[in-house]
Amino acid sequence: MLTKRIIPCLDIKDGRTVKGINFENIRDAGDPIELGALYAAQGADELVFLDITATNERRKTLAELVTRIARHVNIPFTVGGGISSVEDVNILLQSGADKISVNTAAFKDPGLVDILAREFGSQCVVLAIDTRFEGDDWYVYLNGGRVKTDIKAYDWAKEAVNRGAGEILLTSMNNDGTKKGFALDITGKLSQNLNVPVIASGGAGNMEHFVDVFENAQADAALAASIFHYKEIEIPALKTFLYNKGVNVRF
């Protein structure tokens, strides 16, 4: 039976992890490879590396980093952050990334999703959506949540799936950082109506929140960053907890 996935997310800047202190058992918590390999050894099902570097050297640094990750990490990983062209994607996949995620660039030019799916296959095209609930519905935000649009998250997700996106990574801005749980309603709406996996992100604060998002929102995967980095929740304990609650997970 296909299992629910637990995905730690690592923010990368200039080839280094931004968060990720509090790991006395590895030599360098700023090293994405060490941290990634540690999560893999602990039973993480996948990893997401989100690059927030803004320099011109960005592309080259990231490609080199992706190669190093691919050499050392024996589970699948996705690379995202500022990806805007077929060329970007080609370099990252050639460097060893299993999937890439696109966000703002895909929203501004939805044809990019079609091209990427056709060139590289839907299985490696993850559409990332940052969304906020406002008034009556969940709306898409761009540029890391700084720019509001008047397009509903569900509508954009549906269009992107029709264009060939193979997975949706949905981050609720209302929930992100609150530690009060995932956005169950919009996650559930996407997961139950779209025929691609939905990765829930934003709001994880305790182990019960993961049960909620898997059982009540039918998320296929759950992503979190700081609770793993600061060891508030450790992956082996989380998996045991989920298993005991009847959630199908990999050990």
Binding site: L2, D45, Q192, N195
Partner: peptide, 17 residues
């Protein structure tokens, strides 16, 4: 093939036994 009664996600992505 997606069965009539529930939505099957295609491709299958993830860990299976």
């Amino acid at each position: 093939q997606s069965p009539v009664e529930n939505l099957l996600k295609i491709p299958q992505i993830g860990w299976n036994n």
